[in-house]
């Protein structure tokens, strides 16, 4: 087994605006099973951060427990990282975010970590509109414990042993829309053309951005009869192609037709989207939920940016917290003196 990636790169490897190459965004060599969809998602995260010119040390990557939650070791080795308790990543992310609002928060979780043990944490993170990107690497099974069906496993899907799943699946994208997430997308690890711009848009979004990324488990859930295999998911996905235009780039074309729409992000960048369906209003919760259900009833899975609320208030706005990270506050600001104490006391009389 090779644990070291050769240090040589393509001699013409491009550099981004920071003067860094893609290599500067890589991490350690993955120890996941060969062919795991999670590795493709890690590569897409590397591409997205490289292309967005994000400095790795301005990123905090957080995860829980599971195959998915191991992956932060395999990208952005120059970033802050916290591998937390099973299902508790949203709490740690909330604490970190409140302490230092200047970092980019990237949570990586799996279907077990999110939809089973961490369901409550996940729902409250979304409900509070915590400013973070939350990626669910969704393979429909517990790969780390020999592939038992997870809560996202579709009804009727056959596991490796041959048993058919009878329980209803948890749809984390639909749940996120229901409980108040302000950016919800779905994608596929095998479709980087859609996944990379979607991650870029999510990272540029201000508020809770949930990405449900179907990521086949090659070892336990990539056989005939599985609804989350490479082959099956490719056959049922309905793709809404996506293009992300960064702030500084000139916008060369404009679309106004029923199926193409442009969404201006909070930071000025632009998401250009080709919808499958002109009735789908991606800025309307009900419409987004209807679009998901509509395709589901036809045995299809809609992928792309499903829902966005561009101008929401994130947790810091709601709480009215300090504008600067806590670690940059000095004694003077933290202990403003008895004059301020007196005025507070006076206000309580």
């Amino acid at each position: 087994m090779t644990y070291i990636k050769p240090s040589f790169r393509h001699p013409k490897a491009p550099v981004n605006e920071l003067g860094w190459t893609r290599q500067d965004y890589e991490g350690g060599l993955s120890t996941l099973c060969a062919g795991c969809g999670h590795d493709s998602i890690s590569a897409a995260i590397v591409d997205a951060c490289f292309q967005l010119n994000i400095e790795p040390h301005k990123v905090a990557k957080l995860s829980g427990i599971g195959c998915s939650s191991k992956t932060p070791a395999y990208f952005l080795s120059g970033s802050h990282s916290f591998n937390s308790v099973h299902g508790r990543m949203p709490s740690v992310a909330t604490g970190a975010n409140l302490a230092n609002r200047d970092l980019v928060y990237l949570g990586v979780s799996g279907d077990g970590d999110t939809a089973s043990i961490g369901l409550g944490q996940f729902a409250h993170g979304a409900r509070r509109n915590l400013n973070m990107t939350y990626i669910v690497e969704n393979n429909g099974c517990y790969g780390l414990t020999k592939g038992q069906d997870s809560a996202t496993m579709d009804t009727g899907s056959v596991n490796k042993k041959g048993d058919r799943n009878v329980s209803s699946p948890m749809d984390v994208a639909r749940l996120a829309i229901e409980v108040g997430a302000t950016f919800v997308g779905r994608s596929f690890s095998g479709d980087k053309e859609q996944l990379v711009p979607l991650i870029k848009a999510a990272l540029s979004h201000r508020g809770f951005a949930l990405l449900d990324v179907i990521s086949p488990c090659v070892t336990f859930n990539n056989h005939a009869g599985s609804y989350k295999s490479y082959e099956y998911f490719r056959s049922v996905k309905e793709v809404m192609p996506l293009d992300f235009v960064p702030v500084r780039e000139e916008i060369t074309a404009s679309y106004a037709s029923g199926t193409t729409c442009e969404v201006r992000m909070h930071d000025g960048s632009l998401v250009r989207l080709t919808k499958q369906d002109s009735d789908h209003d991606i800025e309307d919760r009900q419409s987004a939920l209807q679009a998901i259900s509509h395709y589901e009833s036809q045995g299809k899975v809609l992928t792309g940016l499903l829902y966005i609320d561009r101008d929401s208030e994130e947790l810091h706005d709601v709480l009215g917290t300090a504008r600067r990270p806590l670690n940059s506050l000095t004694e003077q600001e933290l202990c403003p003196g008895s004059r301020f104490l007196d005025s507070i006391n006076a206000g309580l009389r």
Partner: peptide
Amino acid sequence: CIECDGCVDI
């Protein structure tokens, strides 16, 4: 090939 992209990524 099952088109998992593993080779492309590595």
